Simulated scan of single mutants.
Amino acid sequence: MDPATASRLADALLGLHAGIVAFNVAMPPAILLGAWRSWAWVRHRGLRGLHLVSMAVVAAQALLGERCFLTHWESALRRLAGEAGYGAGFVEAWLGRLLYVEVPLAALLPLYIGWALLSLGLWWWVPPTRAPAQSVKR
């Protein structure tokens, strides 16, 4: 893979990672607000299941003492691109600053576990609903 392609893929992966983080962080407050405002989409079983699985992966990685696999993949792509570290490109510099904090993983562990437990608790406090069965017209 040529360095320019690896760099673009690393930037795309960083953008995807930032989107997943935003999704994971925003869902619990959105669910609570949506329950209060009677927004049907916050009870969508597929969306809620995706969020719960995503938070379970984050919590499991933290419990195992591992950084996110997306971070590892992005780093590998940056090495292929010949980039030594963060701050080289616009996307990398700004999204990287928002996404990556320089603290020990152990410091983030209670936050990750707590947010995952909140997400699990919301499954019962604001239960998702099954989509109504589609009627078949003959």
Rank of each mutant, 00 (worst) to 15 (best):
C68W: 06
F90M: 09
L70N: 05
G96Q: 07
A62V: 03
L16R: 03
E66M: 11
T129D: 09
G114F: 05
P28Y: 02
C68M: 09
G85R: 13
V101C: 04
R43E: 10
R78T: 00
R43H: 12
L117M: 09
S119P: 01
G121C: 08
V53A: 14
L105F: 01
M55L: 12
P3A: 05
L13Y: 05
F23S: 11
V101S: 08
A107L: 15
T71H: 12
L80F: 00
R97Y: 04
R130K: 06
L111C: 07
L80G: 08
R97L: 03
W115R: 00
P104I: 00
A60I: 02
R67K: 11
L63G: 07
V58W: 10
G49F: 09
L64N: 01
L47H: 09
C68H: 09
P127I: 02
G19C: 06
G65A: 05
A10W: 04
V42D: 07
A40Y: 08
A4W: 01
I20L: 14
L16A: 13
Q61M: 10
L16F: 12
Y112P: 01
A35L: 01
F69C: 07
V58H: 01
E66S: 08
R138L: 05
H51N: 14
G65Y: 04
L63M: 11
H51V: 06
L120D: 02
S38E: 14
Q134C: 03
A22S: 15
Y86G: 09
H51P: 01
G65C: 03
A84Q: 12
D11G: 06
G65L: 07
T5L: 15
R79W: 13
V25A: 14
V21L: 11
W124A: 05
E83M: 12
V126Y: 08
D11A: 15
R138K: 01
H17M: 11
A22Q: 06
L52A: 13
W125V: 13
A106F: 03
L13N: 02
L14A: 12
L14R: 14
R37L: 12
N24D: 10
A116H: 06
H44C: 10
R67Q: 13
L98R: 12
L63N: 00
N24M: 14
H51I: 03
G114A: 06
L64Y: 04
A26L: 15
A56N: 10
L9A: 14
G87I: 00
T5M: 06
W73I: 12
A62M: 05
R8F: 04
G87H: 01
R67D: 13
W39P: 07
P127N: 03
A18Q: 09
G46N: 12
L95N: 04
L16T: 05
L98A: 14
G19Q: 06
A56K: 11
G87W: 03
H17V: 00
S119N: 05
L99V: 15
T129C: 11
R67G: 08
Y86E: 06
W41R: 04
A26W: 10
A30W: 10
G34S: 08
V136C: 02
I113E: 00
A116D: 03
L111V: 14
V103I: 10
L9T: 08
P128N: 07
A22G: 11
A6T: 05
A59S: 08
T129M: 10
R78W: 07
A106V: 15
R45Y: 13
A131Q: 09
G34V: 04
E92T: 14
A62S: 15
R45K: 14
R79T: 12
